[in-house]
């Protein structure tokens, strides 16, 4: 009888520990896999510096191209899951080509997201930084409005931010001109 209770306790404990660690570990695995094996794309962005109570300062990035330009845009409801295929322009920057309700089969370069209004989609918005540098990063962006972009890796519909750059240099490492004077 005691062994049964002990076994039940052990199983319960294993279940508790599994649940505790499962979610963050799965998140890490998916993200690492995407970062290492995904295709790289550059998107032009605008950025500003808000604050998250639990995760500190971050750079809120807004993809300049977060709507679908193609006439074949599927008429989506707000919040509906959709898939946006990604293509690259001549200038080397990426854009979202078209939206579909089904997962694309002819390409692996697509982003799984949710629709907003008027052909727009939800894109990644957060880039976490050192709290002392996030305000500077916003200033750097304001000084380089046309040259700021985000590098992302895309695999199986998952998009992970690899970094925010200005003219090829990571924004975390740049000091604003304003601070230099």
């Amino acid at each position: 009888m005691m062994n049964k209770i002990e076994t039940k306790k052990l199983l319960l404990y294993i279940f508790i520990v599994a649940v505790l660690f499962l979610l963050p570990i799965c998140t890490i695995i998916v993200n690492t896999d995407t970062l290492e094996g995904g295709n790289e794309f550059l998107f032009k962005v605008e950025a500003f510096d808000p604050y998250d109570m639990f995760r500190g300062n971050y750079l809120d990035i807004d993809f300049l191209e977060d709507s679908v330009n193609n006439d074949e845009t599927y008429d989506m409801n707000y919040g509906e899951r959709c898939y946006a295929t990604i293509k690259i322009r001549e200038d080397g920057f990426a854009y979202f080509d078209k939206l579909t309700q089904e997962r694309p089969r002819d390409t692996s370069d697509y982003y799984e997201t949710t629709a907003r209004y008027g052909g727009m989609i939800n894109t990644p918005t957060r880039y976490y930084m050192n709290e002392n540098k996030s305000l500077d990063a916003e200033k750097v962006y304001e000084e380089n409005l046309d040259n700021t972009y985000v590098k992302v890796r895309v695999k199986n519909g998952k998009m992970v931010i690899a970094g925010v750059f200005v003219d090829g240099v990571l924004i975390d490492t740049i000091e604003p001109q304003e601070n230099k004077h």
């Binding site: 998140t27 639990f54 957060r126 976490y128």
Partner: peptide, 10 residues
């Protein structure tokens, strides 16, 4: 929170 921050989880 920390995992979210390290991997820029949206």
């Amino acid at each position: 929170s920390l995992v979210g921050q390290i991997f820029h989880i949206q």
